[in-house]
Amino acid sequence: MKILMVNTLFYPHVFGGAEKSVQLLSQGLADQGHEVVVVSVAPARDVKYVGGLKVYYLPPHNIYWGGMFGRAGRLKKLLWHLGDIFNPGIYRELSGIADRERPDIIHTHMLTGLSAAPWVIARRRGIPVVHTLREYSLICESATMFRDNTNCSGQCRACGAFTALKKYLCNHGTIKHVVGLSNFIIARHLQQGYFKGVPYSRVFNGIEVPTTPSRLLPGLAGPVKILYLGRIERGKGVWEILEAAQQMAGIELYLGGRVLDDEIREKIKQQKYPAHIQFLGFIDPQEILDQIDVVIVPSRWHEPFGRVVIEAYQYGKPVIASHRGGLPEIVIEGKTGFLYNPDHVQELLAILKRLTTDPGLIPALHSHIAEHLQQFDNNHIARQYEQIYQSVIKHDIN
């Protein structure tokens, strides 16, 4: 089977978990004998082979590359979004790729920067499309449904205008199967009127599961070492964990990621945080995960999945996570970690107190993780997608 894998970004342009997940899935499918061709957006046009995968990098055909989005002003962002409703340049180049590669199926993921062009191309050529929901860009122009430190209850008028074409294509036969990383993200799209009558499935992100179970390293007699990985900003729940950490003895909090919150950045400059709170800057998770005891994912927004959770499991680390979005579907309360309401810091403090006063708790959580991790095995995830592709093609032929 020949699969055209389409995502906003691809290696080496890795800004988050989606790029890692799409690459792992593509490689997993290739390992099972399928031919996978990848299309993404990059600063300049190129064709390269990455881990045996043929990758087309398309220029943005917009006023700037999406990877620079955070540095653009308000007017430029508005113009960029208008250009991303339907991008003729992307349509022209991707049409040529589709005609040249002749895929059996097009699998789309994040379409920011690619516009609705991949779906229009598939529709006009009769190529079936499977789409994976990794964020909320089909509903919300910021892709988060989170504004002013609050989760949006529905779609605003502006976002409705920007996403109208994609919504139309979702509901008029273009998408043959939709996949969500969580039941939560599927339900959120269905509630907003997307994918009417389209079959859907939940398929988790994949990870390379260690061939030998991770061992719990000694040294838990000292402070409990807690790690946060991600953007350091309000929507990620960082304020709340900083507040809790300043009230707790017996822990060390390490934060790895870019500081995007101005107030936190100023406090770091003025050295207002105590010594047991350390900001590490951007860091590769593999450099630190084996040195800590627990990972925390405190998101205030409705995180669709939370790749850092399974990266923690990969190292045998339990996870403390907010009860938001898809996180409760992958963090099992009392087995692989704990869940709390991010609106109530006292719930987080109670969990931290348990970890610091019960020396047997972390080893007990660790013992459940290896078994739980198997459902995220990348080969298993690739086989699930293979079954979806086969059912879509069979239905399309009939």
Results as ranks from 00 to 15, higher is better:
Ser142Phe: 11
Arg74Thr: 00
Val179Ile: 14
Ile332Trp: 10
Gly154Phe: 15
Pro285Ile: 01
Gly96Met: 15
Tyr254Val: 03
Glu19Ser: 08
Phe10Arg: 02
Glu93Ile: 00
Ile175Gly: 02
Gly96Asn: 12
Asp284Thr: 01
Glu287Ile: 01
Cys140Pro: 02
Glu243Lys: 00
Asn378Gln: 10
Arg231Val: 04
Ser21Arg: 07
Ser26Tyr: 08
Phe305Ile: 04
Ser142Asn: 06
His276Ile: 06
Gly160Ser: 13
Gly237Trp: 10
Leu253Cys: 06
Cys170His: 09
Leu227Gly: 01
Ile381Ala: 00
Ser182Cys: 13
Arg45Leu: 12
Asn149Gly: 01
Leu220Trp: 11
Pro285Ser: 00
Gly256Thr: 05
Glu19Met: 06
His81Lys: 04
Ala221Met: 13
Val198Cys: 11
Asn62Gln: 13
His177Gln: 13
Val209Ser: 07
Phe204Asn: 06
Arg102Met: 12
Asp377Ile: 04
Asp343Leu: 09
Val308Thr: 00
Gln375Gly: 10
Glu240Trp: 12
Asp396Phe: 07
Gly126Gln: 09
His366Pro: 02
Tyr11Trp: 08
Ile186Glu: 09
Pro210Gly: 12
Ser26Val: 07
Val129Pro: 13
Thr112His: 10
Ile283Thr: 03
Glu266Gln: 07
Gly337Cys: 14
Val47Pro: 07
Ile241Leu: 05
Asp261Asn: 11
Lys2Thr: 07
Glu243Val: 04
Phe282Leu: 08
Gly89Ala: 08
Val41Met: 09
Tyr228Asn: 02
Lys176Gly: 05
Thr150Val: 05
Phe376His: 07
Glu19Thr: 04
Ser40Cys: 06
Gly360Lys: 10
Gly52Glu: 14
Glu311Ile: 01
Phe86Asp: 07
Lys77His: 14
Leu327Gln: 08
Ile330Gly: 03
His34Arg: 13
Tyr254Ile: 05
Gly33Ala: 04
Pro274Met: 05
Ser299Val: 03
Phe15Met: 15
Val55Asn: 12
Ser322Phe: 11
Ser299Asp: 11
Trp119Ile: 08
Gly160Cys: 06
Ser391Cys: 10
Ala161Asp: 00
Lys166Trp: 08
Leu133Arg: 00
Val198Arg: 15
Ser153Arg: 12
Met5Phe: 02
Ile207Pro: 06
Ile127Asn: 07
Leu361Tyr: 02
Thr108Pro: 00
Ile186Arg: 11
